[in-house]
C-alpha cells in the first residue's frame, strides 16, 4: 500500500518535536494533543496545577503558526468576552462586530471550570458549531480551529465542573501527570535561563495543517476495524458499571481520532491498536460510572471510568482481516 506523503509526515514530526521541547518526558501527551488537532477535535486537559497543561497548549499553538488566543476563565467572565460583541459605531452609524477571544486557530481556555455555566456554554457552542452567532449574524471561526481547555480537578469553591453533556464535546481528555524525576531534573536545569516556550517557533503553517487534516480524513477504516470500534462503543452502553455509555458523537470522534493517529503513525489505514490506544483518552471522560463501581474501585470517578474502558477494550475481540 502507499505510504503517507513524506512532507506530511515530516510536518507532523516537526510539530511533535517542537511540542516536546517544552513538555519534557511526556511524549504521549504531546502525541494525543497533536492527534486531536489533526482530527479536528478539542482537547480537555485535566490535572492538578503546575504540571504543564497550559504550557502544552501554548507550545502546540505556537508550533502550528496560527493565531492563538488565551482565555483565562474566571467567575465574572461574560459570554460576550468569549464570542465577541456588536458595538454601535457612531461614525459609520451601524453595529460593528468586535470578535471575542474565540476567534483564533487555537484557543486556550484556562481553568474552564471556574467560569459560570453560561460562559462555558458559549465556548462549547463555538466548539461544536465552528461559528459564532451574535445578534442574529453568524461569524465563521478560522480554520483550523481547536480549543484546548484545561480543568483543575481539585474541588474548589466557585467552580462549575463541566457536566457530562459538555465534556462529550471534547474529543479527548487527558491528564499530564507528574514528570519522571529525570525529566524533572532536566527541566530544572534547562529553565534557569529562560522558559523554553519563548523559543518555540511555528514549524508548520495552517495550510500544511489543513493538508494533514484532509489526509487524516482520507485514512482508511476497514469494515473489520469499524466493527471493533462499534464493539467497544456498544460494550460501554451495556456495561453494568456504567450509568452512561458512549454517545454516537463519541463513535464519530473515536473514528476520527483513530484515523489521525494512524496518519501520524505513517499509515493510511487504521489498525485496532489505534483504537485501543486511544480508547481511554477519547472515551473515559464521556462515561459516567455507577456509584457502586466507584465505591468498589475506591478511586475517583475518572479513574473508575478509565478502568472500565480498559476492561471493555480487553474484552472486545480483536478483528482479523
Amino acid at each position: 500500500m502507499t505510504a503517507i506523503d513524506k512532507a506530511l509526515r515530516s510536518a507532523a514530526d516537526r510539530v511533535l518535536t517542537s511540542v516536546q521541547t517544552v513538555i519534557d518526558g511526556k511524549p504521549e501527551a504531546a502525541s494525543i494533543a497533536l492527534t486531536v488537532l489533526v482530527a479536528e477535535g478539542h482537547l480537555l486537559i485535566e490535572d492538578v496545577p503546575g504540571v504543564g497543561k497550559t504550557m502544552l497548549a501554548k507550545a502546540l499553538a505556537r508550533s502550528i503558526g496560527g493565531s492563538i488566543s488565551r482565555i483565562q476563565f474566571t467567575p465574572d467572565l461574560l459570554p460576550s468576552d468569549v464570542t465577541g460583541v456588536s458595538v454601535f459605531d457612531q461614525a459609520a452609524g451601524q453595529f460593528e462586530f468586535k470578535p471575542g477571544a474565540v476567534f483564533a486557530n487555537l484557543v486556550i481556555g484556562d481553568e474552564i471550570n471556574r467560569a459560570s455555566p453560561k460562559t462555558q456554554s458559549a465556548l462549547l457552542e463555538c466548539m461544536e458549531e465552528g461559528q459564532v452567532t451574535v445578534d442574529g449574524r453568524t461569524w465563521q471561526l478560522p480554520n483550523p480551529f481547536m480549543v484546548v481547555a484545561t480543568q483543575n480537578p481539585i474541588e474548589m469553591d466557585g467552580t462549575y465542573a463541566l457536566p457530562e453533556a459538555q465534556r462529550d464535546r471534547f474529543m479527548a481528555s487527558m491528564s499530564m501527570g507528574y514528570p519522571d524525576p529525570r525529566a524533572e531534573l532536566a527541566m530544572l536545569r534547562s529553565r534557569e535561563s529562560q522558559s523554553p516556550i519563548a523559543a518555540v517557533r511555528p514549524v508548520i503553517d495552517t495550510e500544511e495543517l489543513a493538508g494533514l487534516i484532509a489526509a487524516a480524513r482520507a485514512v482508511y477504516l476497514s469494515p473489520t476495524v469499524e466493527q471493533y470500534l462499534l464493539g467497544i462503543i456498544t460494550a460501554t452502553r451495556a456495561h453494568p458499571d456504567l450509568r452512561l455509555g458512549a454517545s454516537p458523537r463519541a463513535t464519530l470522534q473515536f473514528a476520527r481520532a483513530a484515523k489521525a493517529r494512524a496518519l501520524l503513525d505513517g499509515r493510511e489505514y487504521v489498525i485496532p491498536d489505534d483504537l485501543s490506544d486511544l480508547a481511554i483518552p477519547v472515551l473515559a471522560h464521556r462515561l459516567l460510572p455507577s456509584r457502586q463501581a466507584i465505591a468498589r474501585s475506591g478511586t475517583t470517578e475518572a479513574l473508575t471510568s478509565a478502568e472500565v474502558v480498559r476492561s471493555v477494550v480487553a474484552a472486545t475481540p480483536v478483528p482479523r482481516g
Binding site: 458549531e129 465552528g130 489543513a210 493538508g211 476520527r256
Partner: peptide, 21 residues
C-alpha cells in the same frame, strides 16, 4: 462533522510521493 469550511487544504493524494516508511 467538523467546522464548516474545512476544505481549506488541497485534497491530499496519499498515493503520491515516495514510499517514505
Amino acid at each position: 462533522h467538523g467546522p464548516a469550511g474545512t476544505s481549506a487544504g488541497a485534497p491530499v493524494d496519499a498515493s503520491s510521493g515516495e514510499l517514505d516508511d
